[in-house]
């Protein structure tokens, strides 16, 4: 009995870990969508490039695991944020007045471009980022991987910080204002261009952080971004595109469903079941779990 409960809790923690990684990535997509109404299909590759930046930084930083892992996290966050900012400045900003479909196509182009870049530069091999938290800790009668605990705690802290930023700081409130009414934002003197830039930087940073957290467990490879991207998008749609709590809830639901199904049933069917549930949610509630039907002013 004890063993079964322990197993279940570990499966649940595994689900939460993956779920938070999904949530951090989906948050970026939903924030960008909120501001520009563009589904940024290239977002997953910010995550992937962040992971490679982390891998490179860790290799350069040397053998001290504590230092190299911190270097990996910082590099991943910085590079992903930078790729986000550049995607806006070089691509999306130029398309603001173009028909919406142009930005969709550009996003897909950007997705392939970044993936091709990684494949050409780093090759198809799996790379590894080492973590100093490569051990098990005892919590009561539970043995849990320390890296998983780190992922849980730092994801929760990051999301709490994001909420603080959006709800309590004037820049964060302005970001929500631009998402709700871009014209209203300009009427009160908000520079929407600057806010959009900040949104891309935050979205990128979140993806880079997620990549550096999960890379010691899942490795680093060129299509890691595309794989995650698909899931992150489904999560955003299920949570209601542009809806921040929805992206978090959707990510956690997908992570936990996947993990429980993989832990108790045939792991090969994991994606099918998880996506099946997400599609079912959409059929029952087309506007998403937290979505609203009204449009913005």
């Amino acid at each position: 009995m004890m063993i079964e409960i322990n197993y279940f809790i570990n499966v649940l923690i595994g689900g939460l870990v993956v779920g938070f990684i999904y949530a951090l990535t989906a948050l970026g997509i939903t924030i960008i969508y909120g501001i520009l109404q563009i589904p940024d299909f290239s977002h997953g590759n910010r995550y992937m490039l962040g992971a490679y930046a982390g891998f490179l930084a860790a290799s350069i930083a040397g053998n001290m695991l504590e230092i190299s892992y911190i270097a990996a996290i910082l590099a991943a966050v910085a590079v992903s944020a930078l790729v986000g900012v550049l995607s806006y400045l070089l691509v999306y900003r130029r398309l603001l007045d173009a028909p919406h479909i142009t930005s969709f196509i550009a996003a897909i182009g950007l997705l392939m471009l970044l993936e091709g870049f990684a494949l050409a530069v780093f090759g198809p091999r799996y790379q590894h980022i080492h973590t100093p938290f490569d051990y098990m800790v005892l919590v009561g009668a539970l043995r849990i991987s320390a890296q998983r605990l780190v992922i849980l705690l730092s994801s929760i802290a990051t999301i709490a910080f994001l909420f603080y930023f959006l709800k309590r700081t004037i820049t964060g409130i302005a970001l929500e204002a631009v998402a709700q009414s871009p014209i209203g934002a300009r009427l009160v003197g908000i520079n929407t261009d600057k806010i959009t830039l900040i949104a891309f930087a935050i979205a990128g940073a979140l993806a880079g952080f997620a990549a550096a957290l999960i890379a010691p467990i899942t490795l680093v490879y060129p299509i890691m971004g595309a794989e995650l991207n698909l899931k992150a998008f489904v999560i955003c749609v299920v949570g209601g595109l542009g809806n921040i709590p929805g992206a978090i809830a959707g990510g956690l639901v997908l992570g936990i469903v996947e993990s429980i199904y993989g832990g108790y049933f045939d792991i090969r069917w994991k994606n099918l079941v998880a996506f099946g549930i997400l599609v079912a949610i959409l059929i029952l509630k087309p506007e998403g779990l937290f979505g609203k039907k009204e449009r913005r002013a």
Partner: peptide, 28 residues
């Protein structure tokens, strides 16, 4: 110069307080 247009363009999901706070954005 501020402009209060037809259609209002308020921030519908933000509180009255935050709408007014943003009204003061340029002197924040």
């Amino acid at each position: 110069i501020t402009h209060c247009p037809e259609g209002r363009f308020l921030f519908p999901d933000l509180s009255v307080y935050k709408n007014l706070l943003l009204g003061y954005f340029t002197n924040r």
